[in-house]
Simulated assay, not measured.
Amino acid sequence: MKSLEKATADYEKAKEKMEASKARYEADLKRFKAAEIAKTEAENLEIVKIIRAMDMSIPELEAFKKRMKNGLPGRVEIQKEETKADDES
């Protein structure tokens, strides 16, 4: 009978630990999600500051966005350099 009592006690102890771990996990997950939301909000505010500093009207900003989307000269140059490096290898 001792082994049944020991097994039952071990089971209860393990169950309590698991429930405590689950509670800590849920609390950590809440903190993580809150931090993730705060990070996204901070990034968005930084983007808004940059855009406002450009001092463009909405139509000018839309035209700029189209030019960047269609042109992206910096990215094209990088891709060309990578292609040249690959060709030389």
Rank of each mutant, 00 (worst) to 15 (best):
M1G: 12
M1P: 03
M1D: 09
M1R: 04
K2I: 07
K2S: 12
L4W: 05
L4M: 06
L4D: 02
E5L: 14
E5F: 10
K6D: 05
K6L: 12
T8E: 08
A9G: 01
Y11V: 01
Y11F: 13
Y11N: 08
E12D: 09
K13Q: 15
K15N: 13
K15R: 15
K15C: 14
K15S: 14
E16D: 07
E16H: 09
K17S: 13
K17R: 09
M18C: 10
M18W: 07
M18V: 08
E19K: 14
A20V: 14
A20Q: 13
A20G: 09
S21E: 15
A23E: 14
R24A: 15
R24K: 15
R24Y: 05
R24F: 06
Y25W: 03
Y25L: 13
E26C: 03
E26K: 09
A27P: 00
L29Q: 03
L29D: 04
L29G: 06
K30G: 07
R31Q: 08
R31V: 10
F32Y: 13
K33C: 00
A34Q: 10
A34T: 03
A34S: 14
A34M: 04
A35I: 01
A35M: 12
E36F: 05
E36S: 08
E36Q: 13
I37T: 15
I37D: 10
A38R: 14
A38M: 11
K39V: 12
K39C: 12
T40I: 13
T40Q: 08
E41M: 13
E41A: 07
A42T: 05
A42Q: 11
N44C: 13
N44F: 06
L45N: 14
L45M: 06
E46V: 01
V48F: 03
K49N: 11
K49C: 03
I50T: 03
I51L: 05
I51M: 04
I51H: 03
R52H: 00
A53Y: 02
A53P: 00
D55G: 04
D55K: 15
D55A: 10
S57M: 04
S57I: 02
S57R: 03
I58S: 02
I58T: 07
P59E: 00
P59S: 02
E62R: 08
E62F: 09
A63D: 08
A63I: 03
A63F: 04
A63Q: 08
F64G: 00
F64N: 02
K65N: 06
K65E: 11
K65M: 07
K66M: 11
K66C: 03
K66Q: 03
R67G: 00
M68F: 01
M68R: 05
N70M: 05
L72K: 09
P73Y: 06
P73Q: 07
G74D: 12
G74F: 04
G74L: 12
R75A: 11
V76W: 01
E77N: 02
E77R: 09
I78W: 06
Q79W: 04
K80Y: 08
K80C: 09
K80W: 00
E81N: 08
E81C: 05
K84T: 12
K84S: 11
A85P: 01
A85L: 13
D86H: 01
D86G: 05
D87I: 14
E88M: 11
E88K: 12
E88T: 04
S89T: 03
